[in-house]
Design a protein around this nucleic acid. Structure first.
Lengths: 195, 195
DNA sequence: TGATATAACTTAACACTGTTAACCACGCGT
DNA sequence: ACGCGTGGTTAACAGTGTTAAGTTATATCA
């Protein structure tokens, strides 16, 4: 295993164990028994290292979702499966989930957008399901891609609220997430407006 | 105006202008023509100063929402008004919005929970509207308070995605937010499930 | 008035942080 | 044998939050 890989696994480990704020170049270096500056031979800077971690986390999430994405003909069931998997991943891998959403594109234009292609593919997956539901007159949407993004955003909101423990203590997070899932999916389903 | 106030307005200014990451004790100190350590006479530490900023931002948001919260008998319209105001505040005051959601309760138990009473009151406002809609058989919810939290989380997701510019460039943020609003509110409205 | 306590502020320092420059050792191809 | 790139080093810079100790001015009380 190369030093680059060592750095990656060790920093990922630190990230998951102690959160991103506590990850420092010198600490990583100490862990892999190397001087701090050596890291710069393999990564341009800390952000670049972070990006590598983000990438692999995105890949992991994307893999999980793709894996759960069973074939079937019920778009509603598919959407439920997706939201379940998404939220499950988020609460089971909070630190990894967090770094995916930590970096803001604008603030680091240095990062090539292609790196985020993977995450765009997830949107497209969602859009595909929504499009299918639209064709079957099950979903009431105008633009499936845009709706995929709104779905995504809502899910992210739910996940982030739970992860950052911002939930009222009176409210159990499991029920909260289920309720949220229901509301979110309900929001896409075709309405027969009363009267 | 006291030095404490000077520190507050100057740090708030820095926060809004350059984002939170660039706010440092020494820079604030320089701005108010005082030594960095003087800040510690008025605030326990940087987090404490941050908390003060958060508090006033929450107050501002809470004030805006309460202000827009017109009386009326249409819960749906009220909910729309609320979501509009919420999202409007978020995109018009991105830095202020961000710090509200930056701090995570668990990681700083030092912060007295009462400080966040204000934000809890907003949930209660939402819950009240939802309860009203529930009584009028307009909304399909089990627990209004829990649903208020899911609504809040969904809105937060939408806001945060827009603020952190994580939106696909193909998608105009205005339309995105409108679409999201529709989906979200739709998710609460009573369904006449087809057949 | 004179002593003293307290508040507001300072400087110096500690222990960190990311990052750069300069240097060193080693294996490879010509 | 020479040069050169590759992968590592140490020392240093500039910045961070924070603490301890010292100063100075102001207000209070005998």
């Amino acid at each position: 295993m190369s030093l680059r890989d060592d750095i990656l696994v060790e920093s990922r480990d630190m990230l998951i164990k102690h959160g991103f704020g506590k990850v420092s170049m010198r600490k990583i270096a100490k862990k892999v028994n190397v001087s701090a500056t050596s890291i710069y031979l393999h990564f341009k800077n800390k952000d670049d290292l972070l990006l590598a971690l983000i990438e692999s986390s995105i890949e992991k999430l994307s893999y999980v979702l793709k894996d759960e994405m069973v074939q079937g003909d019920d778009p509603v069931a598919k959407l439920e499966k997706m939201t379940d998997s998404f939220l499950k991943f988020a609460i089971e891998n909070p630190q990894e989930y967090e770094i995916i959403y930590m970096v803001r594109h604008e603030e680091m234009p240095k990062y090539p957008k292609e790196k985020f292609e993977q995450i765009r593919k997830i949107y497209e997956m969602l859009a595909e399901i929504i499009r299918e539901g639209q064709n079957k007159k099950l979903f009431q949407v105008e633009d499936p891609l845009m709706s995929a993004y709104t779905l995504w955003a809502q899910l992210h909101g739910v996940a982030s609220v739970v992860i950052s423990k911002r939930l009222d203590t009176r409210i159990p997070s499991g029920e909260f997430m289920n309720q949220a899932k229901d509301h979110i999916i309900q929001g896409f389903i075709t309405q027969k407006t009363p009267a």
